[in-house]
Design a protein around this nucleic acid. Structure first.
Lengths: 217, 217
DNA sequence: ATGAAACATGAATCGCTCGTCATGTTGCAC
DNA sequence: GTGCAACATGACGAGCGATTCATGTTTCAT
């Protein structure tokens, strides 16, 4: 258990590496389209163009490939997001860039994204780990911005999960359901909500608040 | 297909109704804890205290019970939320009450809530239907509040999904992961984010921001 | 070039699940 | 109380999927 890859037989030759990668690539497609439980090892090996037994040369079980895919996805997403906001100073700019990078990532990795959503029922620990790591990075960034007075002081973990929830549902509704990024006005409106929810003040509000609230019904 | 309950053999006696209900209750527990795919018909019938064959007297398949549970859950949640906000005029008050009612519902129906999250991989149509119906009710309420000038004008569907995302992740992080409602300061901070994200004006920002949030760490 | 280790194969095993069915048992209308 | 429809049972067949293994092939360090 010390070495996370200990269970998965590491290839010793170039051919081995190639085959192992074929399995991972095939598993990503098969799990993403059929779902974890519905996917069989045969589905994966057939998609990879190898024999069933070969699978077990590189992975001890179906769950092991799945776990590796989830781990890879998490790392890749965190890298992508970190790179997307690396040079940005202002937190609200970071949020906008992060939202955009996240949705682009989901669009480019729909299978992987569906895999994460299944992890909850395949291996709870894996799933919590994915979100916990993501949230932790997010929390640290938010906390710093709060300290620096860029955004209002709120519980940073609560804000991290709230924002992840927004992103996740946008990804589901537009990217997964419609296969494309949300229309620009949706992105603008959601960002407006985030900006003014997080902002210290609302100088950017349009001051047309003359419309006095009326009672409904 | 015309009658949604056509597939499920309707009981003709009181005993039949009781047995059918035993199956539904058991299925809720088994699906919620083991997960849909991992759950077998035997698991369900054993939990219900009936014979395997009896299951097929009332449901044509595993998926059929699952679908019925999802439908029931959706209806029950929508009823709960509608009741919780029925007498409220102000939209921000509605949002706060809705958040509270939703989290309470999740806490009281953890199994059902986990079932919804699996629906995505069991029957995509079922799953979209659940969220679409929920979002549609939400959208209408938001659109009216926007028309009445209670909250700012944004794309109501985008806002509905964003807010559902927030609620969903709070439910996941605190209710599902920790088994209890989020601490008060988390609710306060999230609501502050929603209020100022949706609010018409920010004149209240500084005043409110200084009293509500207590430092969490 | 060679031989040992690594890799690949796919048929076979084992365990499990779905769904059926022949055989009882119970509820209820009369 | 009788009889029939509804309900309940649990063993069984058919099938499938994860994993193993005996056998063959390829790679590569020497």
């Amino acid at each position: 258990m010390a070495n996370p890859a200990a269970d998965a037989h590491e290839p010793a030759t170039a051919r081995g590496h190639r085959t192992r990668q074929k399995v991972l690539d095939a598993a990503e497609v098969v799990f993403g389209t059929r779902g974890y439980e519905a996917a069989s090892i045969v589905d994966i090996t057939r998609a990879a163009g190898i024999a069933q037994g070969t699978f077990y040369l590189y992975f001890p079980s179906k769950k092991a490939v799945f776990a590796e895919l989830v781990g890879e996805l998490g790392a890749k997403l965190r890298r992508t997001l970190a790179a997307a906001v690396a040079d940005l100073d202002d937190r609200l700019t970071v949020e906008r860039a992060g939202l955009h990078a996240f949705l682009g990532f989901v669009r480019e990795h729909r299978n992987l994204y569906r895999i994460i959503r299944q992890a909850e029922f395949v291996d709870e620990a894996l799933y919590r780990d994915y979100y916990s790591k993501l949230a932790e990075g997010y929390r640290v960034g938010l906390a710093r911005a709060m300290t620096e007075g860029q955004i209002r002081k709120l519980d940073p973990e609560a804000v991290a999960f709230a924002l992840m929830g927004i992103f996740d549902f946008l990804g589901m509704r537009w990217v997964l359901w419609e296969g494309k990024l949300p229309p620009q006005h949706v992105l603008d409106d959601v960002f407006a909500l985030v900006r003014d929810g997080l902002g210290l003040q609302s100088s950017t509000f349009n001051a047309r608040a003359s419309n006095a609230p009326k009672r409904s019904r």
